[in-house]
Structures are given as C-alpha cells and as structure tokens.
C-alpha cells in the first residue's frame, strides 16, 4: 500500500526538488509547532498511532535526538536502529533492512547513511514515508530548513539576504541543502573556503565563490560556518588545522571589519578554535543554539506534513496550550 500523496509528496529527500511554497509552508508550520516545546507538558496527539523508525547507519547525536524529541512530542511510537560496523556491507544491509521494515508495516523512516543517494534508494523501495536525515555528501534537508527558519527569525525574511557558506563544502550535505533552500527563497548565496574543499564547478549551482574569508565577510549578511573535520587534514585537503584557522577561521577580529552586523550560524558540532573562534560562537552574532531549538520544530513540521497534515490546519491539529 502506497501512502496517499501529501503536501510534500511521499518523502523528504532534499530541498533541491521542493518548491519555494512548500519550503515556506514547512517554516510556517514549524513556527506554529514551536510553542509545543515551551509547554510544561510537551506532547500533542498529532501522530498518535503512527510508527516511526529512526534508522541511523552513521553515528549521530544531535540529529537523532532532535528527531526523537519531535516524534515523541507529536505522540508517535518510535524505534531507534543504529547499524554500525556490521560484517555485511552497508548496501546489502540497506536492501534487506528496507524489505524488513516494509514487512513490519511502519509508517515512516528517518534515515541517516554515509552514502549519497541512500535515502532516495530506500524511498524508491518501500511504501512508507522516508525522511532524509543526511545522506553522504548529498543533502540534509531538515538541517537546511532549520537554518532557513533561524535566519528568518532573526532577519525577518530570506529574500534579498546575502548568505555565505564557509568551509568544507565538498563533503557537506548541509551546504547543498542550504544552497538549494536559500536560492529558492530568493537569497544571494556564496561559498567560501580553500579550493581543495570546493566541489567541481560549484558556481554552476548558482553561487559565488570566495577564496578568501575577508572577501566573504565583507559581502555577507549571514555566515553559515561548516565544521572542519580532522580527517580533512590527514587526507591532505588542508595543511593543518592551525593554518585553516588562521586563513579561513571566523574570528571576532574578522567580523569587526564587516561593514554590517553579520549573523553567524553553525550546524554543529563545533570545533572551537578551528573553523570558528569561541568568542564568536558564544558571542552576540551567534544564533547556534536557536538553530538547535528550531531543529525540533522543523522536524515536527516535516513529520506532520508527511503524515498527511495540511499547513493551514497545523494550528488546530496541535490543540490549545
């Protein structure tokens, strides 16, 4: 049995193939759902009776917990599956896992996987709704959405803003979801970092490319700073973390030179003193913890809409406080 089509379609795999109206509706629904997390009893019966599997093939703390809170606050029944380092290869596990889930008649799957395309692969093979919680270097749509919501909260609108994504764009699913979401909502988008960490022909996505952080900061209203993983140094993409910080790190001094107030986002986890200095992360420009709070609301909105909810009835669905 295939689920009936919803406002978002069957699945949420990425922001590349969503319309601007769909993205805005998710943000508006999230806005409505934010209040649930502020109640003394943080639970509404929106997804009562729905079963959701959180299928994490890659270690994740914050995304998994954020999804789990969103599910539980909407009263869904959830199961967490963490598949790491089994003797079977990931791909084989994926096919068999898909078939087993199908046999158990679950309603939704939230999947995190190290291979780009893994969420699409699963979505094409099971009738349940599939939510991509990060697939390889492809997309991480709920992260993109929570970034959009946070920027909108602080700047009022996305359209016309200049947003620069700083750092390891090559390996970043967060970057791709941000680029698509921001462009669809009318922002100007740039990326900044050393050429070794940029995907081929990155400008063809519709973004500018700054090779120097000073130029990016002079241009941008918003910086979304990506995590630089230690492995990138070992693999030779950058000579050292120290040098990376020196030439590409976001510091108070660099922000002080900006012609305007710059909003600073970071998807976490932070590597303080590498891509971002502590006084920036903890300072007045930073909205990093707002992102985390918004993450739960955005995920509630996505779950609600994929379960067949309509944006215009979200207020009624969640009931009074």
């Amino acid at each position: 049995m295939t689920q009936p089509p919803t406002f978002l379609g069957k699945d949420l795999i990425g922001l590349e193939h969503l319309e601007a109206e769909q993205i805005l509706a998710i943000l508006d629904t999230a806005e409505t759902f934010k209040e649930i997390s502020e109640r003394p009893i943080k639970k509404v019966p929106v997804l009562r009776g729905k079963t959701i599997v959180n299928l994490f093939f890659e270690p994740s703390t914050r995304t998994r917990i954020s999804f789990e809170f969103a599910e539980k606050r909407l009263s869904a029944d959830t199961v967490n599956v963490a598949e790491t380092g089994s003797s079977v290869t990931k791909g084989e596990t994926l096919v068999d896992t898909a078939r087993n889930l199908e046999a158990m008649r679950i309603d939704m799957v939230v999947i995190r996987h190290s291979a780009s395309g893994a969420a699409r692969f699963l979505a094409d093979r099971i009738p349940s709704n599939v939510i991509n919680a990060g697939d390889g270097r492809h997309e991480h749509p709920t992260q993109g959405l929570l970034d959009l919501l946070t920027i909108r909260d602080h700047r009022g609108a996305i359209e016309g803003l200049r947003v620069c994504i700083v750092g390891d764009v090559l390996h970043s699913r967060v970057a791709r979801s941000n680029i698509w979401g921001l462009l669809k909502l009318g922002a100007e988008v740039a990326v900044c970092g050393p050429g070794t960490l940029m995907p081929a022909a990155v400008e063809t996505l519709g973004v500018r490319f700054f090779r120097r952080i000073e130029d990016a900061i002079a241009w941008a209203d918003v910086l979304n700073v990506l995590r630089l993983q230690l492995e990138r140094m070992h693999a030779g993409y950058v000579p050292s973390l120290r040098e990376y910080n020196r030439f590409f790190g976001v510091s108070t001094e660099r922000l002080a030179a900006a012609p305007r107030d710059v909003l600073v986002l970071h998807p976490g986890p932070l590597t303080r003193g590498v891509e971002i200095d502590s006084d920036v992360a903890d300072g007045p420009c930073s909205v990093i913890l707002d992102q985390v709070t918004n993450g739960v609301a955005v995920r509630m909105a996505v779950l609600y809409l994929l379960a067949g909810g309509r944006p215009e009835t979200a207020e009624a669905a969640k009931g009074g406080g």
Binding site: E16, S116, G117, D135, G136, R137, H138, E139, R173, R176, P199, A200, A201, V202, T204, L205
Partner: peptide, 15 residues
Amino acid sequence: NEGVVSTRLGLIGIP
C-alpha cells in the same frame, strides 16, 4: 565523472 552532476549528487568525482 567530476562535474556539475557529481557536485549536485554529492558524489566524489573522477576528473
């Protein structure tokens, strides 16, 4: 292949 499509799909390209 390394190019526009690999960048969109998030796959590592071969130049």
